[in-house]
């Protein structure tokens, strides 16, 4: 198999993009560690860090990472519905319903985080 096997089919390309979203996850997680570090160091360092987030390079990286994170969330919610089999009584709940529960949880958690911060 060639090393570029994942370019052969649309579904393979989509797969490799999905897998590469892990880089967005790692990147943003490290960014968050530095945010907490700046908070620990005091207000000056914190404001400096927030300025740093405004630099064009960081804005570009964050926009790309945001796309990755969204793709990760959407594919994760859809695919986890395939692995998780929930039964009510005797009937298996359709995957779409499991996925919509994921999305509802996503919205609620996002709203709670915004509410806590602002």
């Amino acid at each position: 198999m060639t090393i570029f096997w994942w370019t052969r089919k649309k579904s393979y390309l989509r797969f490799i993009l999905r897998e590469l979203t892990s880089l967005a996850v790692a990147f943003f997680t490290i960014e968050m560690i530095f945010l907490f570090w700046s908070l620990k160091e005091g207000p000056d360092v914190y404001h400096e860090f927030m300025e740093f987030l405004r630099s064009p390079v960081l804005v570009f990286l964050n926009l790309s990472a945001m796309a990755g994170l969204l793709f990760h969330s959407i594919t994760w919610f859809n695919l986890s519905a395939k692995a998780i089999v929930v039964k009510i009584g005797k009937a298996r709940i359709p995957g779409k319903l499991v996925a919509s529960v994921n999305y509802i949880a996503w919205i609620i958690i996002s709203a709670v985080i915004v509410w806590i911060l602002y």
Partner: peptide, 29 residues
């Protein structure tokens, strides 16, 4: 995977996009 899918996008939306673009204020220290 589950935790990051649920939590990270909104935090990124706040700190990585909304705040740098000035749509919302910096969270107070």
């Amino acid at each position: 995977g589950t935790l990051s899918a649920l939590v990270l996008p909104v935090v990124m939306m706040i700190f990585g996009i909304s705040v740098p673009f000035g749509w919302i204020d910096d969270p107070e220290y």
